[in-house]
């Protein structure tokens, strides 16, 4: 088990390096000279040249990359072109908000998707199943931003139960968490249902029933654990999807997280900030997938061997 985890971590390292190279390269391909942004439109050529030298932009691409990488590894991600604040400081101040939002949304998503998916599979082709499937269809068809706006109109503007934006109290969490959690739950619920139905056809489920176990035990202990294997494998993809969703939702609810920091930075062509956030998100997705791989091994003993 430990060997498996260590190997997974070792395998993730080249992946992260590859991503960092890609992010760095893409930023250089993107239009707009960061040095001119940094120096300002009216700056004389000498100033531009000196900044270019100072930031290392005059060096060959690979040299620039490794200089940047070694700085990043030491926690120095440069400064924001706009606010002149260190990028690491900006990220540190925003990250907790994104994490908190995602944590509650994930929790809500799981809390809806699993019970609903299990019940739908157990009561297949009854009104319970149809209702759950209808919920999933509606949930998956609604774009997150649209759901967010509807929730704002109904619960914030008309009923005045929750604030439209900002942070502070628990009430601020309700609408963004609900938006993210629901759209996530819909897809996940369908997966739980499908995967469980597939497993319920298996011979070992019949064995479990032949033992005289209660249907609840058969479902949760014998079937669901096996159904988790395909669910967990795609969970990694879902996490990436959630990151994208977060960017949109944070913007709508003026949530001071990484997503909104990214959209602002993109609009302002805040070169180093964009670079750092994209890198962070990419690494987060890799880390999440790593976690999924480990979970995978925890659930399925056959994975630990290979």
């Amino acid at each position: 088990m430990l060997k498996y985890v260590v190997r997974r971590i070792l395998l993730a390292i080249p992946l992260v390096l590859g991503i960092s190279l890609l992010v760095f390269g893409l930023m250089h391909l993107a239009p707009g000279d960061p040095v001119r942004m940094l120096a300002g439109r009216e700056a004389p050529q000498e100033v531009i040249d000196s900044i270019r030298r100072e930031w290392g932009f005059d060096k060959p691409f690979l040299v620039q990359y490794f200089t940047w990488l070694s700085k990043v590894l030491r926690g120095d991600m440069g400064r924001s072109v706009i606010s002149q604040l260190p990028v690491s400081y900006l990220i540190k101040s925003r990250l907790p908000y994104t994490l908190k939002l995602n944590f509650w949304a994930t929790l809500l998503g799981l809390a809806i998707a699993f019970p609903l998916g299990v019940i739908a599979a157990a009561k297949r082709q009854t009104w319970v199943d149809y209702a759950a499937s209808a919920f999933a269809l509606v949930g998956m068809s609604m774009p997150g931003f649209w759901l967010a706006l509807v929730l704002i109109i109904v619960f914030a503007v008309q009923l005045n139960w929750f604030p439209t934006s900002g942070t502070g109290t628990w009430a601020h969490y309700v609408l963004p968490t609900a938006t993210l959690g629901f759209s996530w739950a819909a897809g996940l619920m369908r997966m739980v249902r499908t995967s469980l139905l597939e497993v319920l056809k298996e011979d070992y489920v019949r064995t479990a029933r032949a033992k005289g176990l209660r249907e609840k035990v058969v479902l949760v202990k014998h079937a669901l654990r096996n159904a988790l294997i395909p669910i967990v494998t795609v969970l990694g993809t879902w996490l990436a999807y959630m990151v994208v969703g977060t960017v949109v939702i944070e913007t709508i609810f003026a949530w001071p997280g990484l997503g909104r920091l990214l959209t602002t930075a993109l609009l302002q062509r805040d070169f180093f900030l964009v670079q750092a956030i994209i890198l962070m998100i990419s690494v987060a997705v890799v880390a999440a997938n790593l976690l999924v791989d480990v979970l995978y091994a925890v659930i399925d003993p056959r994975v630990r061997l290979s």
């Binding site: 070992y204 019949r206 064995t207 032949a210 014998h222 654990r225 096996n226 399925d300 003993p301």
Partner: peptide
Amino acid sequence: AMIFQEPMTCLNPVY
């Protein structure tokens, strides 16, 4: 009690 034809698939792989 009952035993089945396919011993390969009749036991739960995760326990």
